[in-house]
């Protein structure tokens, strides 16, 4: 099981802040493919991954990063702090 978190407009588009999912994905990109194929709201949220960032266990990562041993995956738009 993997904990998947969504923030900002990704959270709004999908309609929930987090969920636990069963996944066979070996990389972030494979997880994105699984999520996209679930429902239209996921497909909409993940339509353009260049507009998204991903963090694995609270560290920024790339979409080709492996998921082995990862407990928490977060998807969000580019950050706007400061």
């Amino acid at each position: 099981m993997i904990e998947v978190l969504y923030f900002a407009w990704v959270r709004e588009r999908i309609g929930l802040p987090r969920e636990r999912i069963e996944s066979q994905a070996k990389t972030v990109a494979e997880l994105v493919e699984e999520l996209r194929s679930r429902e239209e709201r996921y497909a909409a949220a993940f339509a353009d991954t260049t507009a998204l960032r991903v963090a694995l266990d609270q560290e920024l990562a790339s979409f080709d990063a492996p998921l082995a041993g990862v407990r928490e995956v977060a998807f969000f738009p580019p950050m706007t702090g400061g």
């Binding site: 923030f7 963090a55 920024l60 950050m79 706007t80 702090g81 400061g82």
Partner: peptide, 8 residues
């Protein structure tokens, strides 16, 4: 902080 701290 602008682009590497997770705020939106």
């Amino acid at each position: 902080l602008k682009s590497r701290a997770p705020f939106w």
